[in-house]
Write a protein that binds this DNA or RNA. Sequence first.
RNA 1: GCCGAAGUGGCGGAACUGGCAGACGCACUGGACUCAAAAUCCAGCGGUGGCAACACCGUGUGGGUUCGAAUCCCACCUUCGGCACCA
Length: 826
Amino acid sequence: MSYNFKEIEQKWQNIWEDKKIYKTDDFKDNKYYCLEMFPYPSGKLHMGHVRNYSIGDVIARFKRMMGYNVLHPMGWDAFGLPAENAAIKHNIPPAKWTAQNIANMKSQLKKLGLSYDWDRELAACDPSYYKWTQWIFLKLYEHGKCYRKAAAVNWCPSCATVLANEQVIEAECERCGTEVEQREMEQWFFKITDYADRLLDDLEELKGWPEKVKIMQKNWIGRSTGAEIIFKVSGIDEEIRVFTTRPDTVFGVSYMVLAPEHPLVERLIENAEHRQEIVEFVRKARNMSSRDRTLSTEKEGVFTGAYCINPANNEHVPILIANYVLMDYGTGAVMGVPAHDQRDFEFAVKYKLPIKIVIQPEGEDWSQKELTQAYAEEGVLINSAEFSGMHNKEAAEKITEWLAEKGLAKKAVTYRLRDWLISRQRYWGTPIPIIYCENCGILPVPEEQLPVLLPLDVKFKPSGKSPLLDCPEFLHTKCHKCGGDAKRETDTMDTFIDSSWYYIRYTSASETDKPWDIEKANRWMNVDQYIGGVEHAILHLLYSRFLTKFFYDIGMLEHKEPFENLLTQGMVLKDGAKMSKSKGNVVSPEDIVDRYGADTARLFILFAAPPERDLEWSDKGVEGCHRFLNRVWRLYDLLLDKEILLADKKSLNEKGLSEYDAGLRRAVHRTIKKVTEDVDKRFNFNTAISAVMELINYIYGYADKVPKKDRNKAVVKEALETIALLLAPFAPHIAEELWEKLGYTESVHCQKWPSYDESAIKEKMITIAVQINSRVRARISIPADISTEEMKERVLNEPQVQKLLDGKEIVKLIPVPGKLINIVVK
RNA sequence: GCCGAAGUGGCGGAACUGGCAGACGCACUGGACUCAAAAUCCAGCGGUGGCAACACCGUGUGGGUUCGAAUCCCACCUUCGGCACCA
């Protein structure tokens, strides 16, 4: 027999909604902003969502009971490709499809009993939202952080759109896994590279972020410091700029390599002997798909016939073209120092280029040495004119300065991070607020004309061009400047822009004449706790940090970082693999809620593993959690009667308690302590729940041993109340019902979190372990408040211990107060 | 290749600051209740040996530090995640 979870959960969900107990007051002090990453409205909740939102809900409910004014909102990342694909496949407009999905998922979320302030709900596809996404675009444009340029860009043939660098994983599309192609196109970019240093440096201030995520961002930004050095081309008036992190090795340069796309290539090979061969090589390298190019480890190159001059020693070095040099990193040119760079070494061996040692380990003489691999360690310079003998670290500085004086070098910093390509040749996204006027050129749409509305009646043909091109009412417009004919930009924005500022919008979601109220945003920000999957470690989290910094710069926000503490939850697995349709190992949250109730579903997902770790789904484990809730329910039936209801906790007198009652009270207060610490300090919900389970087991034992007439009513009442309060964040419905059974009319979720009484926890006698040579040989009972000296004495006088020590010499006594004593003997 | 995380019973996991390894849950075994089953309740449950008290072994592997190591250090193995010609 199960408790009637269906009736109970429905009942309380209705009451919570009617009474709006989760509505947040903007102007109360002691704010706490708890946020989970908003979902894409695919139509159905999956277990990953349930996990994400259960974790967030525990934190929100706990903080509320701790007296915080909690902001806990929910919304929809509602723009994106699946809606368009559904439109093509099922002939249903994206707006309609999305709205249905939102309605469906919202009802699923409500069935989980999550404590959201639904009045702040937002959807990225709503004109009242994307109007401000467009406004942000205009601000970036106005501040020179948004520009248009032609570039070789990543193109996904399956999604029929371009992608940002961050959205290409191992040369494949992040969304669909299709191999990405390179295309030359005119596109819009956000200048995230202007923020590279701040995005990197401020990572240090994010004390509440997992180290792992910070390292991933750091590597992604990839800052390298070094120098840019100019090599003049021999015979013609051209120069090659190279970026290097090792200016100390410049005397060891034995060749120069350019990327096949390098602009100087044409000019250099004009008069080359084997021109045709070289042209063929360049053509082949350029046409290679980015996948083949990054995955082929074979370094290939070709000599251009031209030479350049090493600015350090005026030596002529050959200029080659090689497939391993990337045009979009550094300057697209690399100085080859085979003796001190492994990749250059291999290339030099293959093409029989000279290998010149310019750094040797301190105290060794390498003037005659033949290298079998590059020496990339620290050392002392040789063969480097007046710099010979200098430590290479120092030489790097000095050589750069020396060349800089001659105008042939400067200190330089290079990043791996690229500017954020934000144009998408798709329909279901925020229209880019730009027009192309026949007379005035490229113009941003004036603020007062926002939003540029997405037309709802559009035909879909995935052609690689925006469907908006086929929509004349949208496409053709008048120039606001000259009144002449103009065309609208038909690309839409990357949906990652929508999700890069939604957390600020929640602070003033109903604002109609500005993106947010600055005062409110400043009050609520930062997000105190952000919760979501690690898959967003770079994409979403980096973009959000970038925009937050921009908002700070233009005075829209007084915070430089959006997320104070970040919790990256693990995946939900079944049979060791991520749940997916193709593997057929999906467990539907709806089914689980239907069969066992939301409280059971939540409890299991919180109990089965700590939040950061992957969680293995177990149907049996779910049943176990359901059994536990039934056990709690029956415990109330067993213990709760009129006398208990009438008992007054204030009448509790510690001194007069029987051994059993004192024991029960100790268990209750210990559990409060354990649960509070586990939830507050460590987010270890699994151990918090197990502590409550232990308490329930303890109380069953108490009820078994102590006859009804001998039970202290106030102690029992305190125990029952504590259970409801401690369970409230995890299993909110049953906790509420139990709280009502105790005779209360105000919601358990509006109660103060229980505090524990240290004196109730204290025990008079404790059991310590007696070790002899680090092995536990006995256990003895001693008074808890005894001194270390007394403890030693007691242990040594214990007959049991004396027997064990018989005939042995005590070398050392190591007491650990409250725990054990180790007797080292010979 | 580089960077990072994790390896503990049959399983999910606990052990927070170096101090009694295996909390809690699942599975399993035995018992109670029942005509029977389910549900529930009680008990047991790392391995080996022993009637038993007990002894020995045991936290991926090998070494080390320490009175004492799942925990700290070194080397290695395996799994997972990130980056991948980054000059």
